[in-house]
Amino acid sequence: MPVVKLTVNGTRYEEEVPERLLLVDFLRERLALTGTHVGCTFEGVCGACTIHLDGEAVKSCLMLAVQADGHEITTIEGLAGDTLTPLQAAFREHHSLQCGFCTPGILMNMSDFLRENPDPSEDEIRRGLVGNLCRCTGYVHIVRAVKDAARRMRGEA
């Protein structure tokens, strides 16, 4: 069985994995990082499994664990330090989640999005969110939180 050496949320792991193991299942079942969710069967359309691969948002259900060898991964568990990130805080304040199933994936995608686009328009935020399905909120509060987080991260009141 192949051995993968990778860093997840700052911790180095060296694990034997079968070739066919999906990265999302490796994270959830081997490392017990169950904040990364699975919302679709094979299509890769819901975005619940979004993680950062070397800092970029990707869907971990469309990757094999063996492919992560030598790479650096951040999951929702590794997003915050001692305090919530401005994006997470904004989600809480703006009631941007109801059941919360989609939230980890959205936070991972939008934190990468804000790094790339620190001053997004509402349109750009909505387009950035296309890869994440939320069945509860109707997106309005999510968009509001991303906008507010962007403002705070730019140092505006």
């Binding site: 990757m63 995608n109 296309v130």
Partner: peptide, 9 residues
Amino acid sequence: VGDRQVRNR
């Protein structure tokens, strides 16, 4: 194409 996660890959 698709969404930003898809375009990243």
